[in-house]
Amino acid sequence: MDKGELVKTAALAKLKLDENEVETLAIEVSAMLENFSMMMEADVEGLEPTTQTLQQENRTRRDEGPIDSGDNLSNDLLERVPEKEGRFIVIPNVI
């Protein structure tokens, strides 16, 4: 994979890479892609793709709230927020 493609892919993944990383990752990614290309030899003619195994029944949940456990989960979650103002989570402005 060339560095241009790597940088483009990194941007999609919101990964900032420094120059050293671009160098080493370009080599490692290419090595893996070469390994992936082995799949081209496999005869997959007529095979359906498997995205999940075994599941046969529908799985749904009833439209009901949880039994009130008494603890205040949302406050617990807010405690873990890096930056907040009151109950709002705060981030730099979107431009």
Partner: peptide, 22 residues
């Protein structure tokens, strides 16, 4: 996001995220 992911993830994780994205 980029800064946090840059310093938060190790090399192997970055490699796999890049591969998976690609």
């Amino acid at each position: 996001m980029q800064m946090s992911r840059h310093s938060g993830f190790g090399d192997e994780v970055k490699l796999r995220i890049l591969l998976g994205t690609y």
